[in-house]
Structure formats: C-alpha cells, structure tokens
Lab assay of single mutants.
Amino acid sequence: MSIQHFRVALIPFFAAFCLPVFAHPETLVKVKDAEDQLGARVGYIELDLNSGKILESFRPEERFPMMSTFKVLLCGAVLSRVDAGQEQLGRRIHYSQNDLVKYSPVTEKHLTDGMTVRELCSAAITMSDNTAANLLLTTIGGPKELTAFLHNMGDHVTRLDRWEPELNEAIPNDERDTTMPAAMATTLRKLLTGELLTLASRQQLIDWMEADKVAGPLLRSALPAGWFIADKSGASERGSRGIIAALGPDGKPSRIVVIYTTGSQATMDERNRQIAEIGASLIKHW
C-alpha cells in the first residue's frame, strides 16, 4: 500500500482517536478583511474532515458561482459510474476541433488520438481543461445529471445548469451553476471519506486533486513544508474566484476548506493574494 493509499484508508480510523479540534476566530477576521479589500462577498467554511463538524464559517449558506470547482464533483460522478460498472477509466473518447472550447490546454493536443476517461478527469482537475469537462459531462448525461447525482448524495443546493464556458457567467442573483460553501464542503467530504465511492475511487479523486497544477498562487502558496493539500480552484466573470481543498499537517488531510468570492473589481492577482492570506491565517491558527 502506497503512502497515498495509506492516508485515505486511515481517514475513518483516525476519527475515533483524534484530539479535539478548536476553532480560531482570527481567520474570520481575515475573511472579513478580504471582503473589505476586494469590495466583494466572500464565503468561507472550515470543516473537520473526520467528524464533519463546522469549525468556522462566514456566509456559509449564501450562493456563489461554482466556477471550475464543479470539476471535482463531476469526476466524482464519473467515478461513481465506474464503480457501478457503467463506465471505464480506460475508455478512449474521440472528439473533433468543433468540440474544443476556450481554455483547453490538454485536449487541444489530442485531437488525433483522443483521450481516456482517466486522462480527461486528470486534465479537468489538474489543468482545469474546459473541453475535458464538457466531454465528461456528456458521458454522464449533461449538467442536469450532475445535479441529480448531487441530489442523490443529499446535496439539494449545488446545481450545474450549463456547459463550459457559459457556466462562468456569474450573474448576480442567478442561481444557475452555483453552490453554497456549507453544501460544497459537505459534499466534498462525502466524496473523499464516505461510502458513495469505493476506496480506490476515493483515492483516485484525491490523487487528481493533489496533482492540481493551476492553484499555486492560492492556499498552496501559504503551505508550510510537510503539509498535505488536494485542491481545485476556479475563476469566472465578475471578479469571481474560489477554491475547495482538503489539507492538513503531517502529510495527511484533516480539514476541508472552501473559499468563494464574487462581485469584485480587483485584479486576479489581488483576488489570489487575499485567498492566500486567508490560508496563511488558517495555518497560523491551526
């Protein structure tokens, strides 16, 4: 058993032996400061991975655009179909130039040979490839079927209504393609630790998130040596930015963190910096 498999397999085991986890309101002070700095709403939640207890939250039940963070949920739905014998990670999917949409750094290189379902999930999560996400959405029946999958998990909040890139429109008060921090954190925890997916599929999902290559300026920039993080970021119109993550010290995840912001006029660099500073406060007061 690899170190990674050891880590995921023991998450339920550690729940019975973990020390009490204490919240630190200092992080919420930073979240509120980020709102002031960005001139935008910020949603935040910090969840204990083992118990599911909410440690801190700010606007946990307000809607925010999901942006590309939905791609983790999408690959969770794909893995659920794999577990049920309805899909194979090794199945190759062929597509054409007409299928390519904006920001497809991986799929645009494989027009001649296509990509496997496994490769598409990797591209969608680690590189946020939009065509990969659309191709995967097609395999499960489209955005409405992803919403149905989430409903069956008990998440009646999170919804996907459109495809890439239209889902990134982020119109104020538009509930399409949105979630709430509390709903996203709970759903992510179920995917990573619950019985919905097999152990192998849970491991695969967290491996893809751990290999994320496009979230460096966010929480990863504040991470001390030896800490673990598996994450997925997102960005969209109207100053929207977000990240969902499982992270913790000693090389294993122990908390879920979800951060969303929307409605800012700030630059992408400034949005990144504010999220990184929230992460730094979280780690300092861990």
Rank of each mutant, 00 (worst) to 15 (best):
V78L: 05
T198C: 11
A200R: 14
L47E: 05
D161R: 00
I3K: 12
K144G: 13
I93A: 03
L218E: 01
N173L: 10
K30S: 07
T158S: 10
I229S: 02
R81D: 07
E175F: 11
V21D: 04
I243C: 06
L282M: 15
Q86T: 14
G142E: 02
L219K: 01
S122E: 15
I275C: 03
H156L: 12
A225S: 14
G234L: 00
E237Y: 07
R241P: 01
V8L: 15
W286E: 00
M115V: 05
V82C: 11
R91Y: 04
I11H: 06
M115C: 06
R81Y: 07
W286S: 00
S2D: 10
D269W: 09
I243D: 02
L28R: 07
P181A: 04
R241N: 03
D174F: 03
M67Y: 00
S2G: 12
Y44P: 01
K144C: 11
L10G: 10
A211P: 03
S96P: 06
L188A: 05
S233T: 12
Y103T: 05
I125P: 00
L10K: 04
S281R: 09
D48A: 06
L196E: 09
P12M: 13
G154D: 08
S240C: 13
T193S: 14
L282Q: 03
T179P: 01
H94I: 13
K144R: 15
A132V: 03
G154A: 15
D129I: 00
E166H: 12
L219D: 03
E169L: 09
E145V: 10
L100W: 04
L137K: 00
A148R: 15
F228N: 02
A40Q: 07
R92D: 04
F17L: 10
R81S: 07
L223P: 02
A23V: 14
Q97D: 15
V214L: 13
M67R: 00
L100V: 12
A211F: 07
Q86H: 14
E145N: 14
K190R: 14
F6I: 15
D48N: 06
H110D: 04
R41L: 08
R238W: 11
T262G: 08
S233Y: 02
A40N: 08
P253L: 07
R271S: 10
A123V: 05
M67S: 05
F14Q: 04
G242V: 03
E175S: 10
E175C: 10
F22N: 13
S281Q: 15
F58Y: 15
A246S: 07
E195G: 11
P105S: 06
P65M: 05
A280D: 14
R189I: 05
T187Q: 02
A276G: 07
D83G: 04
E164Y: 00
T138S: 15
M180V: 12
T178L: 02
V72C: 04
T116I: 03
S236I: 03
R238K: 13
S57A: 12
Q88C: 14
G90R: 10
F149A: 07
H151D: 12
W227G: 02
V72L: 02
S68R: 02
H24I: 07
S201G: 09
T126Y: 03
Y260T: 00
L223I: 14
S240N: 11
L111P: 07
N134S: 01
S80C: 10
R41V: 07
L197H: 04
M268P: 07
R159Q: 07
E175V: 14
K232T: 02
M180L: 07
G226C: 05
I3H: 15
N173W: 11
A23T: 06
I275S: 02
R255A: 02
P60S: 15
T187D: 12
I244S: 01
S201C: 06
P224F: 01
D177C: 02
L137A: 01
Y44D: 01
I125M: 12
G194R: 07
Q265P: 11
